[in-house]
Structures are given as structure tokens and as C-alpha cells.
Nucleic acid binder design. Structure first.
Lengths: 207, 207
DNA sequence: CGAGGAATCAAACGATCGTTTGAGCATACG
DNA sequence: CGTATGCTCAAACGATCGTTTGATTCCTCG
């Protein structure tokens, strides 16, 4: 019985297996030999299609980050600057796309990859993340600043940073967040979003 | 000019260099050759004194975790069960020892090692952490449960998990938390503790 | 049908890893 | 003094890593 990915083109099969193995064993921990074996392709295929392992890592990031950033920015754009926008609305624009992604195919694995990337203090990886992620964080921070005008810039950065840490931690699946079998998928996602938003909003607004 | 550690015994020099290099490059990323060179000892010294690289990693953890857990439990014991204890008190018992450690010698590097260990989903490492860290988390969670009796068990676990994520993220130095040169060390530590405690308390107590 | 570029393959390359070895050195004790 | 004992050292071992090579297969298009 062929794997579900067996019919996909080689490049896609590599990206899928890479996402899974990077999440499970880290970037150094997952070797190209494991990876190509899991994908059912030849060892040399990675260097042929991507040039190097590092470029494969970047591609894994780019594919999902583009999705994630796109959805977040679209959701933010709808509410940014509006007079009746609440902190909860902005948090929802940040959190819901990530939860959607994390329940879509292998997307949840990507959130673990992302958490791992935060933990790696590797400079080139951090620069890559800053280049492809930083402008989104800045836009959201600007909107938080508008809704929390009494906070100093330093205080605001502090709180946004703490919110980011909590969400990254939670969504990469460290916690005990587990869907009960009698709760439908989309309902569980809503509940998760409610928990995260309530917690983060409370932390942001604390006097 | 000899390194500051030059006079220390070989075992201590290895542990110091290991803490630094593991924090900077990860457990796999830091090789025994870099490590022994940085410590100024022979390559074979690690296997002679510790048996293997894995046992060295465990020793790095044990040394600091014993400190950290000891101080946290001592601080908790003073306030647990007392009628006038607040959420903020419990959070202080959890946070202040970590901040003290992170400003004591190479201690701050250890918080990064710890964050890295959380990101690694390696089973043996997680079991080691659970064995040496889990009982502390359970004690703190029990005290939170006492002070937040209206929360369901599920809701409580959620919030404790989010607090843990925020604090791990913040204390491992991802954020922009930087001491200004005109603020004395101990004052900066107090301010950091205030930020963290206020944020976490607000998140825990949110209705 | 046949030429030609794209893709795949087994095999090998050099580098680096954790670990082991066995000789050499030091210090302490009879 | 001689000899154990604890430690350090340079050197080598086998394994595994990312990458490259050159031949082979596949598929498309004139």
C-alpha cells in the first residue's frame, strides 16, 4: 500500500517528510538519509531540487509562513484602525489563523518547527525569521499600541513578548491541550481560541 | 592571560564550558572538540570524568536544576496553605529564584539550555525533565488550585501551561528585555520580576 | 522514431562526530 | 626509593553526516 503522498511530485514529498522529521528530531537531528527514506525518494534528490539542506529548511519555513502571515495580515487589515475594534479582536486575528493551520494536514507539526526555531539561537535562522516574520509582528504591535495608549513603549513590548511566548508554547503542543473524542474538531478549535484570547487579553490589559 | 576558570578542577571547567556551548549551539550542535578546547582540557577528559556526552548533559541539568528547584520549593513552602497568600506571592516564589539564577554567573545561559530542552521533543530528555522538574510544577499547580477554587481542573492546567510558556520564553532571553546601563543590576531584576508577575497574575485570574 | 533535457539512481568523497586506546605523567604512600 | 593510583595526552577507530559524481532512466517534442 503506497503512502498517501506517493502520488505527489518529489519536491512536495520531500517538503512533507521534512516538516515532520524537523518537528520531531530538530534540524540537525533529522538526517537527509532518514528524510529521503521517509519520503520514498533518492538521497540525492534533496540537493538536486533544493540545492542544500539549509535551503530545504528555508523552503519548509517559507511555504507555511507565507500562509500564516497572509491570513494574519488579512484578518488584521479588516479591523486595524477601526473605532470599535477590541484587544480581543486583534488577538483573534493573530491566533485563529495559527490554529487553523495547526489543524490542517501537517500544519500542527509546523508550529513545533517554529517553536524549535525560536529556541535555536542560530543567527542566520533568526535573521531569516526576522525578515519573514518581523513586519507582521510590528503591525500587530502597532495596533496593540493604538488600543493600549496608556502603556509605555517598553511596557507594551514586554507584554507582547510575553503573549508571543505563551502562544508559541501552547500551540506547539507542549501543553496538555488535547481534544476529547466527543468534541468535534471545529468546536475544539473555538474553545482553544477562547482560552488563548481570554488569557492573552487579560495579560495585555493588566493595570 | 589564563581564563577565569583556569584554576578550577577539570570537571568544573568542563561543566562551565558545556553550559555555555549547549546554550549557544544546542546539545548536538556543540561538539566535544569545541567544548574541551574552550575548557582548555583534553578531548578524552569528558569520557573519563563523565562517561559519555549524554551523561555530561544530564550533569549540566542536574547541577542547576537542583539549585533552581531547591530555591523555588523553599520559597513556596513558606507561603503554601497560608490564609493570606496571594497569587502574586506564589508567582514570585516561582519567578524570583529563576531570575536570581539567571543573573548569577553563567546561570542565564542555563535558562536558555532549559528552553532548548523544552523545544526538543526527545523522549529521554523529556522523561529526565519530568522526573526532576515535574514534582515542582505539581506543587505550584496545587497551590494555584487552592487560590483559584472557582476554576475547573482543565481551565487551571490551561492557564498554568500558558504562564509557563510565557516565562520560559521571556527568561531564556528571546525578548528585548535588556538592562539599561544606568539601572543597577538588582533593580533591573526587581523590575523584570514585577513585569512577569503582573502579567502572569492577570492571566491566571482572568474571569 | 530518435534526440535531448529533466529526473533518478547507486556509489563514493571528505569532513566531523563520539568514543576508545595505550603510553606518559604526576602525586602520594609503604 | 619504588610503586601504585589518578589523571592527561596524542592518536586512532568506526560511524554518520551533507554533498558530489557520473551513469542511467524517463519523458517530451521535433
Amino acid at each position: 500500500m503506497p503512502s498517501p503522498q506517493a502520488a505527489l511530485p518529489t519536491k512536495e514529498r520531500i517538503l512533507g517528510a521534512a516538516e515532520e522529521l524537523f518537528a520531531r528530531h530538530g534540524f540537525d537531528g533529522a538526517s537527509l538519509r532518514q528524510l529521503t527514506a521517509a519520503a520514498g525518494v533518492n538521497l540525492a534528490a534533496v540537493n538536486y531540487h533544493f540545492g542544500s539542506k539549509d535551503r530545504l529548511i528555508e523552503e519548509v519555513f517559507r511555504r507555511r509562513l507565507d500562509q500564516l502571515n497572509g491570513r494574519r495580515m488579512a484578518a488584521l487589515k479588516k479591523i486595524a484602525g477601526e473605532p470599535d475594534t477590541t484587544i480581543e479582536d486583534v488577538l483573534a486575528a493573530f491566533i485563529v489563523p495559527a490554529l487553523e493551520l495547526s489543524h490542517d494536514g501537517n500544519g500542527s507539526l509546523f508550529m513545533r518547527v517554529l517553536a524549535r526555531a525560536f529556541a535555536e539561537h542560530d543567527d542566520t535562522l533568526r535573521k531569516f525569521l526576522s525578515d519573514n516574520y518581523g513586519h507582521v509582528m510590528r503591525q500587530f504591535t502597532a495596533e496593540f499600541a493604538r488600543l493600549l495608549p496608556h502603556l509605555s513603549k517598553e511596557e507594551l513590548y514586554w507584554r507582547v513578548d510575553l503573549v508571543t511566548g505563551a502562544l508559541t508554547h501552547a500551540m506547539s503542543g507542549f501543553g496538555m491541550i488535547q481534544r476529547k473524542s466527543d468534541v468535534p474538531e471545529h468546536r475544539h478549535r473555538e474553545q482553544t481560541a477562547e482560552h488563548l484570547i481570554r488569557f492573552a487579553a487579560s495579560g495585555l490589559k493588566s493595570s
